[in-house]
Structure formats: C-alpha cells, structure tokens
C-alpha cells in the first residue's frame, strides 16, 4: 500500500484528480435524468480536461510566461542578492536582452490552447442552456424520462 502510494499515486496525483473529476462528469452526463444536471456534468468534464492540459505546462520553480520588459522586480532582486552572475543573467533574460531559459517559465502553449477550450466551453454551454430552455417551453419538463414519454406518446397534449 505504501509502495503503491509512493510510486504510483504521488508522482501522478494531479492526473488522478483529473481522471476522477472526469469520471464524475461522465457519470453525470450518462446517468442523471435532469438535463441541467447533465450540463453541470459536461462542465465538470470540461474542467477536468482544462486542468489536465494546464498541469502539463507546469514546470517546477518556473514563473508565469510573461517577460518583464521593465525588469524592475528583477533589478531589485538582483541588487538585493548582490550576485553578479545569477542575478544579472536572470535580469537580462527577463528584460529581453538574452533569450530566456525555457526551464524558468511555464509552458505557454497549453495556456493558449485552454483559453480556446474555455471560450468554446462557454459558447457550447450558452447554446445548450438555450436549447434546454426551449425544451422546457415545449414539454414543460426537464426530466429526460418525462420528455421521452411525451415524445413517444405523440407530442404534447395541450
């Protein structure tokens, strides 16, 4: 058990969390009867995927992928350290004199891709909610089995 925890769970705890989140979302999508609850499940599913991608871009001890064009923070840090080599190297890389070391910055590519995914998620959720609203207007219910019964019975009574 301890071996399983140390070798399997600990290095990949983030992926375990996303898989579990994704399972919750998938279960809600399949098993829930209420359409709004299905949409909540869809959102949880999307969140799991987004978290998964963002965590792929994480690097240990790395900063956000934004260069400091003015370098104020890094100037101060370099002066405080008094270190000529490490501090200046870092400062020069931040103010764009030198190309930055890729290992000091989080991977920007997953962030961009997930920006797309979040936006598309909002769009699909909006369209899905409007469709749900029309379904409620038409059938007077959001429960899947009740809607199916009405559809099989040949439409709305009134």
């Amino acid at each position: 058990m301890a071996e399983f925890f140390e070798q399997t769970l600990q290095p990949h705890f983030n992926f375990w969390i996303y898989v579990i989140l994704m399972m919750i979302g998938l279960w809600a999508l399949i098993a829930k009867n209420n359409l709004i609850k299905k949409l909540i499940g869809m959102s949880i599913f999307q969140t799991a995927i987004i978290l998964f991608y963002v965590s792929l871009g994480v690097k240990e001890d790395a900063t956000i992928p934004i260069l400091d064009p003015y370098g104020q923070a890094e100037h101060a840090a370099a002066d405080a350290e008094g270190a000529e080599t490490e501090g200046e190297k870092k400062r020069d890389s931040y103010i764009g004199k030198k190309s930055p070391d890729p290992d000091t910055m989080a991977n920007p590519l997953p962030h961009v891709l997930m920006l797309t995914a979040i936006v598309v998620g909002v769009a699909t959720l909006g369209v899905a909610l409007s469709i749900t609203q029309m379904i409620f207007k038409e059938f007077g219910s959001l429960e899947e089995d009740e809607i199916l019964e009405i559809v099989k019975g040949g439409g709305v009574d009134d």
Binding site: T8, P11, H12, I20, V58, A62, N107
Partner: peptide
C-alpha cells in the same frame, strides 16, 4: 462504463511524466 473508462485512463496515467517536470515531452 465510467469505471471502465476511468480505469483505463488511470492505467495510462502511470506512464505520464511526473508533475512539474521541466523535461517532460510537452515542455522539452
């Protein structure tokens, strides 16, 4: 269905690079 899907994914996850690895295939 959910348990089968999750199980397959969790099995696959064991081959993934560990969290925060700067040399993982996605980063380098």
């Amino acid at each position: 269905a959910v348990v089968i899907t999750g199980g397959i994914l969790l099995y696959g996850v064991s081959d993934f690079p560990s969290f925060g690895d700067p040399k993982s295939p996605a980063n380098a």
